[in-house]
Design a protein around this nucleic acid. Structure first.
Length: 421
DNA sequence: AAGGCGGGGAG
DNA sequence: CTCCCAGCCTT
């Protein structure tokens, strides 16, 4: 087909789409080839609902692309990183958005780009400051890798984000998704992204019957995404797939308003929510953590910095640790503080018990008022500080620790200002 | 291939 | 409560 015929075909497809008459049998539309489907085993998979047929799975790619682009232009949300193609901003936004909702990430993007307008300014910063700006966003290895990556980009590429997939993949914190996203959105290179949204959309369109966590499934889904990619506008296409997954093809999908429902096997069979197929995850354990609030003679509070390679690495915390169930929480508190810092304390009254959920376990943080009984200088391998209340705002703390700090601050202001109740 | 790694919003 | 989000890294 020559270019002119292709244009004509596209116009035909578009006008039919706009008339609400998508037509699977248009001979001018590109089809996801049966060869592709066969190569990934989709022609003979019994998904338990019905046996999938090549014909019922073949997608008119041009129609789907038009449906997606038309929907996207009308429905896309405004985001601060959508007003630019500055690769640095695209990179930063993609790191922020890993496992993170757009609404949650926006204020962090604004603060980080304001404080660090360039890769150089980010690479020159202290990791502590980056972590402080990242506090509350979770997955702190992203912040550590971001900082490490900035230094690498300055050294290796003179501060310019590379555009080639292999170069991007060599950057700490940049994996297959992020590399394809930066490459396509910032540089217009034809790489399809495969994230949680795209996996959901594609697994429903194709009624993909296998566990999407398997690497073989990822490969298959990526081939599908690549076959569907609109190489004339890769970035917009990728964003439209993800936006569809975020706004329409959600865990509880709104199929009646979906622009591609007429191409969707999941919709056709009335069982879109059966996809994507995921194995049940095991339930999370619940730990009890006891920590101590220790003040010196000047009323400053003891805090320590978590090891960089640990969970919540680089953040600050109150000393303490996990209860071993053969002991009381007070005993846990005393034992852990001695082990971690070498300081002996008398454990006083309970200040608060704060519940908190992590992704793979739950904790209750029991905080005790502690009295230092040894004059020993803390002999911990970790960094530590005696900090006054105002300073506590300048350190990065995990969520449960931050809640405790807020309670301490409230207590203090309540006693100094006098309680009217 | 499997598990670790945060926090928040939706239902 | 549960689910899951513009995933990456280590083992």
């Amino acid at each position: 087909m020559n270019a002119e015929d292709f244009m004509t075909a596209e116009m035909t497809v578009l006008s039919r789409f706009l008339e609400g008459k998508p037509n699977r049998d248009l001979e001018t539309t590109q089809l996801v080839s049966c060869e592709l489907l066969r190569s990934v085993g989709m022609d003979s998979i019994n998904c338990g609902i019905n046996t999938l047929q090549n014909d019922s799975l073949a997608l008119p790619v041009a129609e789907v692309q038009y449906a997606l682009s038309a929907w996207f232009e009308i429905n896309k949300r405004e985001m601060p990183w959508r007003i630019t193609r500055n690769p640095y901003h695209i990179w930063l936004s993609e790191i922020i958005l890993q496992q993170t909702r757009v609404e949650q990430g926006i204020p962090y993007f604004m603060r980080l780009t304001t404080r660090f307008p360039t890769v150089e300014s980010l690479s020159d910063a202290d990791l502590d400051e980056v972590l402080q700006l990242w506090e509350g966003l979770g997955y702190y290895s992203r912040a550590r890798n971001l900082h490490k990556a900035a230094k690498m980009i300055v050294e290796k590429w003179s501060g310019l984000i590379p555009s080639a997939l292999d170069d991007l993949l060599s950057i700490p914190g940049v994996g297959p998704y992020t590399a394809a996203a930066i490459s396509s959105i910032a540089f217009g290179h034809p790489h399809a992204v495969l994230d949680g949204n795209v996996i959901r959309v594609l697994s429903r369109i194709f009624a993909f019957p296998e566990d999407v966590a398997l690497s073989s499934s990822k490969q298959t889904l990526h081939k599908m995404a690549s076959a569907l990619l609109d190489v004339r506008r890769p970035g917009d296409h990728n964003e439209s797939m993800m936006e569809l997954g975020a706004l329409v093809c959600t865990p509880k999908p709104d199929c009646p308003i979906c622009p591609v429902r007429s191409f969707c096997k999941g919709f056709e069979t009335g069982t879109p929510t059966q996809f994507p197929v995921k194995r049940a995850k095991k339930k999370t354990p619940h730990y009890h953590i006891a920590v101590g609030v220790i003040r010196d003679e000047e009323g400053r509070i003891f805090i320590q910095k978590r090891s960089l390679d640990s969970m919540l690495g680089g953040l600050w915390e109150f000393p303490g640790g996990k209860n071993e169930s053969t002991e009381s929480y007070q005993q846990t508190c005393r034992r852990e503080i001695l082990e971690e810092t070498g300081m002996s304390v008398d454990v006083g009254p309970l200040i608060a018990s704060i519940p908190h959920a992590y992704s793979h376990f739950k904790i209750t943080l029991h905080a005790y008022d502690c009295e230092l009984t040894s004059s020993t200088i803390p002999s911990t391998a970790l960094s530590w500080e005696w900090a006054v209340n105002e300073q506590l705002q300048e350190y990065a703390f995990p969520k449960a620790n931050r809640l405790l700090i807020n309670m301490l601050t409230q207590q203090e202001s309540g006693t100094t200002e006098g309680n009217n109740d």
